[in-house]
Design a protein around this nucleic acid. Structure first.
Length: 550
RNA sequence: UCCAGCGAAGCCGAAUGGUCAGGCAGCCGGCUGUUAACCGGUCAUCUCGGAGGUUCGAUUCCUCCCGCUGGAGCCA
């Protein structure tokens, strides 16, 4: 059930390296570099205790202070502005002020809404800042254990889980008896003193003084702390989200999305949202969900790309991030009917730079998650070794080389012209120790808008990034056809309704320009980074072939 | 659409052509340090997904249907 892990290292290491090292990127970041830079931030105090003015000042000062101690590759990047010499404007510096402040604390920042006067409600994630103090927790009973004169109440409040210890000698007999009767998922207010855990160093617990039941369950909570079947859990998705594992996944998802936005912000992209209702299929391949739009058919978008091409002509470097929909009857561990996609598009960018952008983008996301979500990855029992390898540059192979790899590895029937299924993608990606870029597929396998390779017009200037460990394609993109006549020809060849694409053809009529971009599926990325066997747990409320509820 | 597997109490789940083991949760009790706690006790007519068939007898074998799961095609 779990995806196959790759113990193999990629073979032709030197060959791809020599051929494909991008001109603007100094070299790969070693694990040691990233670890040492991580340690600079992890020792800082949580931001809650700092005043905002200090925080601003230190954030402003930090880049310069770091510059002196930064390794050479990083200094290099600092000095190179996006407008000079770096074609994509991609910066690999992983330390943003946000990244620094969130590194050591899950909740991250100073609350913008001040607590009510006199209230001492504390988030469980912040208990370490309140050792010795009497605090109030508000949350739900996650689990309960007892031992004679002690009850151990595991309380969760969304920020974390803590053990609240009710000692018979500390509370009234009534309260002690009541604590014994508390049911799972009762909502509570717990008042007690924060102290170090009786057995585990570095953890904290609360010595209970009082417990108030805010809401007792009307019936038995269906999800007991034991195994359950997938279907049952999916039927109870609204409750399942409360469990530790789901909590960890959603936190990682959150961090991935934040890293996506930070990456594009840092590299001067503008967020341009694409519409969700569209009048026509933009790729003309997949099945779309049709809706009624005041009497006319409309479809739920399957990609924002065509709109991003228009936006790139207006803003240069753009991206969109939103839900996309596919009505395919796919029932696999990699498919959802509704999923979230990130799609950057850059004016005057060509395929080679597109690959550089994609590999730096992915590296940034993975390294940010490693910095900020170690606890969550531990809960998910994710082996992070393979993730630490995710550093640009990635190996690159052509579609033809990929076919050769397949032929030599148990797929002798593979031939030029075939597309890759999940199985084939796994065979290819298992040859490498990090994501691999496969480029220049046959044109007839690809959507109409791809540019052709000038050296071989049968090939598309496209690229897919295959994630390691059997997770398959997570990025797909490439360079777009910029020539009006050729694009018109492609629309005709694909039997697409010409009228619907007039606006799109306008982009070639009025100052056409080379441009490229890609799409990244968020759920597949979350699934890969978390090491999950199925994408259904990576989105809060999945929409799948046979599931529209809850 | 096709292929394969599965369908038993709130949940997980063994066995079986002759009437559902065990466990979790629940309930009662025990234990000053437990951490998917543990120990003892207790509980459930669940027509063993539905319909039909074979049989003296089916949860168990066969057929169809429904549902679920994984996969193929398609895709991120």
């Amino acid at each position: 059930m779990s995806p196959p892990s790759s113990g193999r290292r990629w073979r032709s290491r030197s060959s791809w390296k020599a051929r494909t090292r991008p001109p603007a990127v100094a070299g790969r970041v070693s694990t040691r570099d990233s670890r040492s830079s991580r340690s600079t931030s992890s020792g800082t105090r949580p931001p809650s205790r700092r005043s905002s003015s200090i925080r601003t000042r230190s954030a402003r000062r930090r880049p310069r202070a770091r510059l002196a101690e930064a390794p050479a590759w990083r200094r290099d990047h600092r000095l190179r502005s996006p407008d000079r010499g770096n074609p994509t404007g991609v910066m690999t510096d992983t330390k943003t002020p946000e990244a620094t402040t969130t590194a050591s604390t899950p909740t991250g920042r100073v609350p913008t809404v001040p607590p009510l006067p006199g209230s001492n409600v504390v988030a469980i994630a912040r208990l370490a800042d309140h050792v010795g103090e009497e605090v109030t927790l508000r949350g739900w009973l996650y689990n309960k254990r007892s031992s004679g004169k002690l009850h151990f109440l595991e309380v969760r409040d969304g920020s974390g889980v803590v053990q609240a210890v009710v000692f018979k000698g500390d509370v009234s007999p009534e309260l002690f008896a009541q604590a014994d009767r508390l049911q799972q998922e009762t909502s509570l207010e717990v008042i007690g003193t924060v102290k170090e855990h009786g057995k585990i160093k570095g953890q904290y617990e609360v010595g209970v003084k009082d417990v108030k039941v805010l809401g007792a369950p009307a019936r038995e909570y269906p999800i007991s702390p034991k195994e359950h079947g997938t279907d049952f859990l999916m039927d109870n998705r609204h409750l399942w989200l409360r469990s530790k594992r789901q909590h960890a996944i959603m936190r990682v998802r959150h961090s991935i999305i934040k890293a996506v936005r930070d990456f594009f912000d840092l590299n001067d992209f503008t967020l341009i949202d694409a519409p969700i209702f569209t009048p026509n299929a933009c790729e003309g391949t997949s099945n779309l969900f049709q809706t009624d739009y005041h009497g006319d058919p409309a479809y739920l978008t399957q990609s924002g790309q065509l709109y991003m091409e228009a936006a790139a002509a207006a803003f240069g470097k753009v991206y969109c991030f939103g839900p996309t929909f596919r009505a395919e009857k796919s029932k696999t561990r990699r498919h959802l009917a509704e999923f979230w996609m990130v799609e950057p598009e850059v004016a005057f960018m060509k395929l080679e730079e597109d690959m550089v952008l994609a590999e730096h983008f992915l590296s940034y996301i993975v390294q940010r998650v490693l910095e900020t979500r170690q606890n969550e990855l531990k809960i998910l029992e994710r082996d992070t070794k393979m993730l630490e390898n995710v550093q640009a540059p990635f190996p690159r192979i052509t579609y033809h080389q990929a076919i050769e790899i397949l032929q030599q590895n148990g797929h002798p029937e593979a031939k030029v012209g075939d597309d890759f299924g999940g199985d084939e993608e796994t065979v290819i990606s298992n040859k490498f120790d990090r994501p691999v870029i496969v480029h220049r597929y046959p044109m007839n396998l690809k959507a109409f808008y791809f540019a052709r390779d000038a050296n071989d017009p049968s090939l598309a200037l496209n690229m897919d990034v295959l994630a390691p460990e059997g997770y398959g394609e997570i990025v797909g993109g490439g360079q777009r056809e910029e020539d009006l006549a050729r694009l018109e020809g492609a629309i005709t060849e694909h039997n697409l309704p010409r009228e619907a694409f007039e606006w799109y053809l306008d982009l070639r009529r009025y100052g056409t320009f080379p441009h490229a971009g890609f799409g990244l599926g968020i759920e597949r990325t979350v699934s890969w980074i978390c090491g999950l066997p199925h994408v259904r747990e990576t989105i809060p409320f999945p929409r799948m072939l046979n599931r529209l509820a809850p």
